[in-house]
Write a protein that binds this DNA or RNA. Structure first.
Lengths: 230, 230
DNA sequence: ACCATACTACGATGTTAACCGAAGCGTTGT
DNA sequence: ACAACGCTTCGGTTAACATCGTAGTATGGT
């Protein structure tokens, strides 16, 4: 079992409160500056700089410089998945003071996961799409049927143009709260983006939770027959 | 983002080399005694005792006492999944001295994951089963068709008797090395157990890697048409 | 040219926790 | 009853590391 130490190294990196806060803040897939991350972590910029260097060294973060800013984002979906998996054990791990506040409620209902939609809404959409025969679940990814391609096209997402990219096309992403799969990858990102431009969903800055507008509820119901809980 | 600290707590627990070694050793789902775990971790029994207490406190491990021994095992499949997910980022994280020894080769080919089969062999079996229409992939679990139930019955696994249990029936479990799903849950465990009693597979003590016997190669090919790499 | 901003490098400090030795408790075997 | 074994608790030592203050470099704005 030579892998133990390597696992420990990676886990220890996530295991610091400041770094965990930074990673959590990046879970929506956006890129944040070093100072912003210092703020969410509750440490000074100097300290944050050190943490970010370590996370970058371990290839957990990717960095992009823009003028005098340095934007950090998660290096890939695998990082997000690992953090979600840890969330699951952290959740059931400690049955102590864990006030399920309104924010948690909102998070459960709809949130971003890296750059795609997650939560009850995301799962409801996937289930409906499978029901309609738009999607089938194969391997680690979803397959989109011809009917699905047509439906998504009329919705405003060009499936074919997403395929060529290096990025996974329609990855299955396990939902932290629902424990069911939702759509990640390029298709998941495109779907979320399209919902936003249509005004169906609104993302709030500084939070992963997503608000469904009235138009969104009606649209999801009318276009796809998706039934959302009240 | 109130969840950061909780994630950090869980990750830090996994982030200690001694504890990571213990958890790795338990990844095959067996239960080990405290002293055995002390040995694999490379620490004294006193130190191990402290670590085990913490892991138990966090509900990552379950304990069972038997005489003067205390047997520890992973508290559930979620723990195993989290560790696998961390393995993925640890893998791609550090491209330094990582000698892919023969043990790693063997692990990639066939190993146990908690209590079911993983690696190239496991993935090959799943793909073939899907191809034959025995399985379909739905949500977080697989569905077994009538044809699949019949085939498994003649193989020696009673699918129906597995359903009632509290445990997930046929969970999709993402493969660390292959990055494709294989069968976990009660069905995965039953399949592995049946392969062992038939003499198709041999598990080695103290290692997660699994050996395929000649009978196993022939049997998998003959019964299911599974093609294994040389 | 000047200053403000964003970030990084270095050094000092303080806290945390892993570790082991010694000793204690409970169980098993003779 | 006694010894052996498995495991846990306690105390003290040591090493690692997160943190911040000071100081430095680079970029952007005026």
């Amino acid at each position: 079992m030579v892998e133990g130490p390597y696992i420990a190294e990676a886990a220890a990196l996530i295991g610091d409160p400041a770094r965990a806060n930074m990673l959590s803040a990046l879970m929506d897939g956006r890129a944040l500056t070093a100072t912003e991350l210092a703020h969410v972590a509750g440490v000074t910029p100097q300290t944050a700089s050190g943490h970010l260097a370590k996370l970058k060294e371990a290839n957990m973060l990717a960095v992009e410089r823009q003028g005098r800013h340095r934007y950090f984002r998660l290096a890939g979906p695998e990082i997000a998945e690992a953090i979600e998996a840890i969330s699951v054990v952290a959740q059931q791990g400690a049955p102590r003071h864990r006030p399920t506040g309104p924010r948690d409620e909102a998070m459960r209902f709809a949130r971003t996961c890296y750059d795609h939609l997650a939560g009850q809404v995301a799962v409801a959409v996937v289930e409906r799409f499978v029901e309609l025969g738009y999607l089938t679940e194969g391997g680690t990814d979803f397959e989109v049927s011809d009917r699905g391609i047509a439906a998504l096209k009329s919705f405003g997402v060009e499936v074919e143009s997403l395929r060529g990219k290096r990025r996974a096309f329609a990855r299955r992403c396990l939902d932290w709260s629902e424990r069911r799969a939702h759509i990640g990858g390029a298709l998941g990102a495109a779907f979320l983006a399209r919902c936003e431009t249509k005004g169906w969903l609104k993302t709030r800055v500084g939070s992963r939770s997503v608000v469904i507008t009235d138009a969104g509820r009606k649209g999801l119901s009318k276009s796809f027959g998706v039934v959302l809980p009240a």
